[in-house]
Amino acid sequence: MNIFVCIKQVPATETKIKINGSGTGIDTTGVKWIMSPYDEFAVEEALRLKEKNAGSTVTVFSAGPSRIAETLRTALAMGCDNAVCVDTPEEIDSFQAAKCLAEAIRKEGKPDVIFTGKQAIDDDCAQVSQLLATFLELPYATVVLNAEYGSGQITVKRETEGGTIEIIALPTPCLIAAQKGLNEPRFASLPNIMKAKKKEIKTHPMASLGVTDADRKIKLVNMQLPPAKAAGKKLAGDAAAQSKDLVKLLREEAKVL
């Protein structure tokens, strides 16, 4: 099987956010970069599928500036066979990212399945999976909790509100966007980490794939930290007094009821 995975490098979840000078992004000084956590589920699922189908390969793709090589190597260390990188400027939008990935994928051949994470934890757009699938004219399912692999078909369970689960049958080739709980991502062993350091990563500059600034649809501007909240007040008195007081405040002061 030809298995593809798309990943994104993002700042570590606990990074303290500082806005850059132009308000279009964060200040990346001292930021620790990681693979977006949902993408880890995608990589793990790809590897498990490979292990169940002898002779399969897993190719991992990512689009971003040169620092993303480190994250591609993490994917290689987990067990991916090949890595492809699209070199882009620091700021691109979901549309451009999806187009880069689509073109890079077209150059690599026809996949049986593409795995992605449901959203990247930096911009939280949750668009690239669907854009990519639509560009490649592949059926897709997002927020996938579980996948069962049959011949020429993958049956997935999708999570929606209130715990409701949709069960969808997708013919291959298709795209699956992983939700937390799809699997437990493996921890790369030291020998694999060492091997991954030496592997070659195929690189395409963004322009060479025909993606330009003109493809951009969205710009983020005026990025700010949320306004600091005024200090809260602790209500005095016994439980009865506190309850009365709270209801009054919520109605008259906060005006939420």
């Binding site: 979840t13 308000g23 934890i121 710009k219 949320p226």
Partner: peptide
């Protein structure tokens, strides 16, 4: 964005 740690306007 960033799990609500920041907000941004979309142009």
């Amino acid at each position: 964005i960033y799990a609500g740690k920041a907000v941004a306007d979309v142009e």
